[in-house]
């Protein structure tokens, strides 16, 4: 017995002393946090380590942080502020380690990719490009939505001959890569006597491509409306197209709007492919400016502009999705 007591480790003696205190039990998990901050401040190398020992220390440190953060985040009973600290701390540690040890030349990086002086005189060009992108996207959105809607409604008639051709149309335009279609429309159609300028060619290609996707989305929306709704409408004497317009479509649209906004986001992004046929849209202008300045900053700027335009749209589409889930539930 006595021997055992003598052999008690430092940790065991320490637990015995404090372990029964309620306040200690409550905040014991903060100890590793203190340890982490301590190591971070005093022991971690400040620059790229020269030997394997340094790398091991870093690796061990990251692993330790990771384990602690997972432990904290997995426990839903831990206070919210602590879980927030754990999450932010993890990101901070990763960023710090990358910044310190990746060996990146940050000054060079900034000068090359994030150099505002390389945008002098280029803004007007980029904005012209943005305008072209938005114009192309908007016109294509309208055309592809209308075309897709018409196709979906025609498919709902279940006419086998019509169905055959529409399925070929949809499959073809869903299977062909947009970039190939663009090239085909712009470079090959002139041989058939249809010569389009890049703007019209891009509108045609994007609209055809996306009308096929839109048609599928609308079809699934129309099919999601119960057959009994059609029967109720027809039993009142409504004609098939009236039943479609007054009863089916208003319900289908509510189902379809979230996936449709998702498609429209993808459409806007895909307009960048029109660069290949020389349409002066945002990406094209970005590449031109990059060549003119012999610096990639304009391209980074273009990427940021795309993100800035698309972020609200993607948020909007998630919002619609959430709302429509609620609506669909209450409608059943």
């Amino acid at each position: 017995m006595e021997r055992n007591q003598v052999r008690q480790s430092f940790y065991q003696r320490y637990r015995e002393k404090f372990g029964h205190l309620s306040w200690y039990k409550r905040y014991e998990f903060l100890l590793p946090l203190v340890l982490i901050i301590f190591i971070l401040g005093f022991f971690l190398p400040v620059a790229r380590p020269a030997n394997a020992c340094g790398w091991f220390l870093i690796l061990f440190f990251i692993l330790f942080v990771l384990l602690w953060v997972i432990g904290v985040l997995a426990d839903a009973e831990k206070p919210r502020w602590l879980r927030a600290i754990a999450a932010i701390g993890l990101i901070f540690v990763f960023a710090l380690c990358f910044y310190r040890y990746s060996g990146a030349r940050w000054d060079l990086f900034t000068r090359t990719f994030l150099n505002p002086s390389m945008l002098q005189g280029a803004w007007s060009e980029l904005l012209l490009g943005l305008e072209m992108t938005l114009k192309l996207a908007f016109v294509s959105m309208v055309i592809s939505t209308l075309l897709g809607l018409i196709i979906a409604v025609m498919r709902s008639f279940k006419n086998p001959i019509l169905e055959f051709f529409l399925v070929i149309y949809i499959d073809f335009f869903r299977a062909i890569p947009l970039i190939v279609l663009l090239v085909f429309v712009y470079y090959a159609l002139p041989f058939l006597g249809i010569a389009l300028d890049p703007y019209l060619a891009a509108i045609l290609a994007v609209s055809l491509n996306y009308s096929a996707y839109v048609a599928e989305v609308f079809r699934s929306g129309i099919e999601s409306i119960h057959r009994a709704q059609v029967e109720a409408a027809r039993s009142l004497g409504l004609r098939p197209l009236q039943a479609m317009r007054l009863v089916i479509l208003p319900q289908a649209v509510r189902v379809v709007v979230p996936p449709l906004t998702g498609l429209m986001v993808a459409l806007l992004k895909d307009t960048a492919l029109a660069t290949i046929i020389g349409l002066p849209e945002l990406l094209y202008k970005g590449i031109q400016t990059m060549i003119w300045k012999a610096n990639p900053t304009p391209l980074v700027t273009v990427a940021l502009i795309y993100i800035l335009v698309l972020l609200p749209l993607t948020r909007f589409s998630s919002y619609l999705e959430k709302r429509s889930k609620k609506w669909v539930k209450s409608a059943r």
């Binding site: 009994a228 709704q229 029967e231 109720a232 409408a233 027809r234 039993s235 009142l236 004497g237 409504l238 009236q242 007054l246 009863v247 208003p250 319900q251 509510r254 409608a331």
Partner: peptide
């Protein structure tokens, strides 16, 4: 059909329309 009223087991009201809109849909459009 417009001369024959039909009442279904599962009501089959149009969920996107109010009661009065459900009722006046067919008179207005047929």
């Amino acid at each position: 059909r417009s001369e024959i009223g039909f009442v279904f087991q599962s009501y089959n009201l149009f969920p996107h329309l109010t009661a009065i809109e459900n009722i006046k849909l067919a008179p207005v459009h047929v």
